[in-house]
Simulated assay, not measured.
Amino acid sequence: MSQEQLNNPLHGLTLQTILTRLQEHYGWDGLYQRVRVNCFSNDPSIKSSLKFLRKTQWARDKVEKLYIDTFS
């Protein structure tokens, strides 16, 4: 394992796992309050949110930071 990955709290986690845990913890409304993206407020689903987050790096970065702040 590289030195970079030793200190990466997201190593081994998929985006789907991260999003699912956050959604279970905060709910869609809570996620939207913390990360203002429409995929969390307009007819939200894991599938549509994953599609958006995979294409939008700034939003993915915010979701990953929220995961680290919440569960670390």
Rank of each mutant, 00 (worst) to 15 (best):
I68Y: 02
V37A: 10
S2L: 13
K51P: 00
C39A: 11
T20S: 11
T56F: 08
Q3P: 00
L53Y: 05
L6M: 12
S2M: 10
K62Q: 15
D29R: 13
T14L: 06
F71I: 11
C39G: 00
H25W: 03
M1T: 13
C39E: 15
F40D: 10
G12N: 13
K62F: 00
S48H: 12
L31Y: 06
L13P: 06
N8H: 08
Q57N: 08
Q16H: 02
T70K: 06
L13H: 15
E4K: 14
L13E: 04
N8E: 10
Q16P: 00
C39K: 13
T20V: 07
V35W: 04
R34Q: 13
K47G: 07
L6C: 09
H25E: 10
Q57E: 14
K65P: 00
P44T: 08
N38F: 10
I46L: 14
N8T: 09
R34F: 01
H11C: 12
T56G: 01
T14P: 06
L31F: 11
R21N: 08
Y67P: 05
Y32S: 01
L15I: 08
T14A: 08
H11W: 14
L10M: 05
L13Q: 11
R21T: 03
N7R: 12
K62Y: 01
T70E: 09
T17K: 14
L31I: 09
Q16S: 11
W28F: 04
R36S: 12
L13R: 15
S72C: 11
S2I: 02
L53G: 04
F71V: 12
Q33C: 09
S49G: 02
I68V: 15
T14H: 08
N8R: 10
